[in-house]
C-alpha cells in the first residue's frame, strides 16, 4: 500500500466516450492523480450485462484506456467479479477482448481464495468474506455512476466485487477491508433513472471521497447515501469539474426498484377481481418461478 495524502484529492475531466479523446483524458488523470504502483488489480463494475451505453456498468473502453495507462509502470491484472445474476457477465461485456488487446492478465474473483474479516462499526460487528487478492493487492476501482435508484459508485463496485452484495452493511464492511489505492469513476455514460452520455471522469485516491463528491451529480446529498455515513458526509470539491453543473446536465428520473413489475398489492387486488368475475390470473400474480 502507498501512503495516502491527508486530504483526499479529486480531479475531474470531460472526456469522449471512446477513442483518443478518452484515452488521453485517462492517461492525464493517471499521471496527475494516481499513486505510484508496482502492481494494480483493476476492478470494474460489471455486475450485469447491461449495455455500457446505459451507464449501468463501467464502459469497457475506459477500463481498457486505464489498463494501458497503468501498464506503463505497473503489472496490471483485470479482476473480473462473478455476477450474482448472470454467468459470464464480464465476458458478455467484452472484458476477454480487453485483456487480449492490452495483454493484461485476468483474475476471476469468484475462483480466488477468500479471507474472512471482522469489521466493527458503531459497536456492531460484521463478518465479511472477500477474495484474498482484493485484501492483499493494490486495488484500482473503476465504477460507473449509477443511481438505480440507490447510489452505486466506487464503494458499491468494490463491495459487489468483494461480497456480491450491495446491502449497506456489506458495502460499509467491504470498504473497510478493501481500500482502493486509486479510483477512476467512469462518467462517460451515467444512469440517473435514465441513461446519459455524460462525458466526464473523476479520479481520486479515496473511495468514500469520490462517492461523496459524485453523489450530488446523481442528485443526492452525501447524507442521503446510507453507506457513506460511517465514512463522513462532508464533501470535497472536484478539481476541474463542478458537480452541480454536471447534475444539471443529467436526467433525474425515478427508477422503479421493481423494474416495472407489479407490487404484491396489485396481485392481491387482481386475485380478488378474478374471484368475483371468474377471470383468469396472470402468472405474475400467482407466485412460482419463471423457468
Amino acid at each position: 500500500m502507498t501512503e495516502r495524502p491527508a486530504t483526499p484529492r479529486l480531479v475531474g475531466r470531460r472526456a469522449d466516450v471512446s477513442g483518443p479523446g478518452l484515452s488521453g483524458a485517462v492517461t492525464d488523470l493517471v499521471a496527475d492523480c494516481a499513486p505510484d504502483l508496482d502492481e494494480a488489480l483493476v476492478v470494474p463494475d460489471c455486475h450485469y450485462p447491461f449495455h455500457p451505453s446505459t451507464g449501468m456498468v463501467t464502459n469497457p473502453d475506459v477500463v481498457e484506456a486505464l489498463v494501458e495507462a497503468l501498464a506503463a509502470s505497473a503489472d496490471v491484472t483485470l479482476a473480473l467479479p462473478d455476477s450474482e445474476w448472470v454467468q459470464n457477465a464480464p465476458s458478455m461485456l467484452g472484458y476477454e477482448d480487453v485483456a487480449d488487446r492490452t495483454g493484461a492478465d485476468t483474475l476471476a474473483l469468484g475462483e480466488a481464495e477468500t479471507v474472512e474479516r471482522v469489521v466493527r462499526t458503531d459497536d456492531e460487528r460484521h463478518t465479511v468474506t472477500v477474495p484474498a487478492p482484493l485484501d492483499e493487492r493494490p486495488v484500482v476501482a473503476v465504477p460507473t455512476l449509477r443511481a438505480d435508484p440507490d447510489l452505486a459508485a466506487a464503494m458499491v463496485t468494490v463491495a459487489e466485487a468483494a461480497t456480491g452484495s450491495r446491502a449497506t452493511t456489506d458495502v460499509v464492511a467491504a470498504s473497510a477491508v478493501v481500500d482502493p489505492d486509486f479510483v477512476l469513476l467512469d462518467g462517460t455514460y451515467t444512469y440517473t433513472g435514465a441513461p446519459h452520455r455524460a462525458r466526464f471522469l473523476v479520479a481520486g485516491t479515496d473511495a468514500p471521497a469520490v462517492d461523496r463528491a459524485v453523489a450530488p451529480v446523481a442528485g443526492l446529498k452525501p447524507k442521503q447515501v446510507p453507506y457513506l455515513r460511517p465514512f463522513g458526509v462532508g464533501r470535497e470539491a472536484i478539481e476541474g469539474l463542478h458537480a452541480e453543473d454536471l447534475a444539471a446536465e443529467l436526467p433525474h428520473e425515478t427508477t422503479d426498484p421493481n423494474g416495472g413489475e407489479m407490487p404484491e398489492i396489485m396481485g392481491t387486488g387482481f386475485r380478488l377481481y378474478a374471484k368475483v368475475t371468474g377471470d383468469l390470473v396472470p402468472p405474475q400474480f400467482t407466485g412460482g418461478s419463471d423457468d
Partner: peptide, 16 residues
Amino acid sequence: PFSAPPAREPVSGWML
C-alpha cells in the same frame, strides 16, 4: 433473457 434495471432476477443458464 435480461432484466430492465435494476438487476434483480438470475438468468437461467439455458437461456444463454
